[in-house]
Design a protein around this nucleic acid. Structure first.
Lengths: 225, 225
DNA sequence: AATCCATAAAATGTATACAAATTTCAGATT
DNA sequence: AATCTGAAATTTGTATACATTTTATGGATT
């Protein structure tokens, strides 16, 4: 006989949470928009009970804000929050890099090398979505190589909250070239297992990214105000 | 006329969440223990709906683990998780210190000085709970002085998850004295606004704390296995 | 004794009814 | 026109009934 298989049956609450999360992250529901229960129960085809449970879960992820007796709204990520989040993420990237330099396995390094080439290919083709994808995968791999699940969870959580700002930022060619150059250095330092230098570079890499995004936000922020 | 006062009316879900959170953090419900809905509805005097919403919220905080179709259990924090959490917290403390050195206001520094004396008093009296309290307040003040709400939120969140391990750790007199000495240095570096040195010291301070707690855990870990 | 198996009991998941609060809006008042 | 007022409509909060799944139980079989 087989051992009892603990199938993670997807409850309606899980389905609703995943659907809503995607809708919010991808910006299909605007920041600040009200999440009307009746409307969403019809859209998602679930009753209010699992939907409200989804609200609580997403509130915990920082994607939704709950106003007692007054419903739920999509969390608004203002410039100050983006700035603070990147300040923290820059440090976490640095930590991940320092740990990864000490703990990364050869296969992981090989995979990052491959992703680096994917990224260079996307850059050469001016394929921005492809670049974002390869870029994110590289950062995720470095993070995974740090072998600290709590760090990874925290990193992903923060990343998710500001995911939307990435696509809204207009990456200049100069900044794009600069980012590519930084990545080349990152890989070199990772291969050299130079933890401290890698930390410094990754932290700066993210602070540069923050500057780019904040500059883009300033333009749209004025329009919103 | 007055502006509309947005009273945060406490819903039963909020009350249930707060009660359960305290019970878990203070260890009144053991790690790994099953959270039976029928039992808890009677204890907390709420129906299943707000109770289940509390489960989702606490799962988001990492205090509860949800097993689809099989209920909720109090999250088990094993030695590996404690180790990883402190590795991350050590870095966050360091970041907080570095930022605080640049951003702290005179009044905040004065308050930390006062708390430092409270801590010294508790140490002189061998008042461990008083020491823990003053110690935690100092770290929270440094964190607040960093002026990064996202960092603070992340820090509190991680702290909450391992809160229980603090009291379980048996602090030796030598380690206690060492911690006091470290705090004296921390205050001096904060007053000197020496960000990099403060970062290094705070990170090391937390790694030392981790070593103490992991040593304590090893003893009880064997007994549990 | 150990293992199955079927059934009962209990627990979780979901929908819905009702309660309480908020929001809307037509009509009155200034 | 702007503001106020209060009932109606809407919306959120909570309890509970029902559905589905898991767990416990007690005998039958080996």
């Amino acid at each position: 006989m087989n051992a009892p298989i603990p199938i993670d049956r997807a409850t309606l609450a899980h389905v609703a949470t995943a659907s809503l999360r995607d809708m919010i992250i991808e910006g299909r529901i605007a920041p600040g928009a009200r999440l009307n229960e009746r409307v969403l129960t019809e859209e998602l085809q679930v009753s209010r009970t699992p939907l409200r449970e989804a609200f609580k879960t997403l509130a915990g992820e920082g994607l939704v804000e709950l106003l007692p007796q007054r419903g739920a709204v999509v969390a608004v990520v203002d410039a100050a929050t983006v700035s603070a989040t990147y300040e923290l993420m820059a440090d976490l990237e640095g930590l991940a890099g320092e740990l990864a330099a000490a703990r990364i396995q050869p296969e992981e390094l090989a995979e990052i090398r491959a992703l680096q080439f994917d990224m260079l290919a996307s850059h050469a083709r001016r394929d921005l979505p492809g670049y974002f994808r390869a870029n994110m995968q590289i950062h995720n791999k470095i993070n995974a190589a740090a072998r600290n699940p709590v760090l990874t969870e925290t990193y992903l959580r923060l990343n998710q909250r500001i995911y939307g700002t990435r696509y809204r930022s207009n990456l200049s060619n100069e900044r794009w070239d600069q980012a590519i150059a930084e990545h080349t250095k990152i890989l070199r330092l990772l291969e050299a297992r130079d933890g401290p230098a890698l930390r410094a570079l990754l932290t700066q890499h993210l602070l540069n990214k923050r500057a780019t995004i904040l500059a883009s936000l300033e333009g749209s922020q004025v329009a919103a105000a």
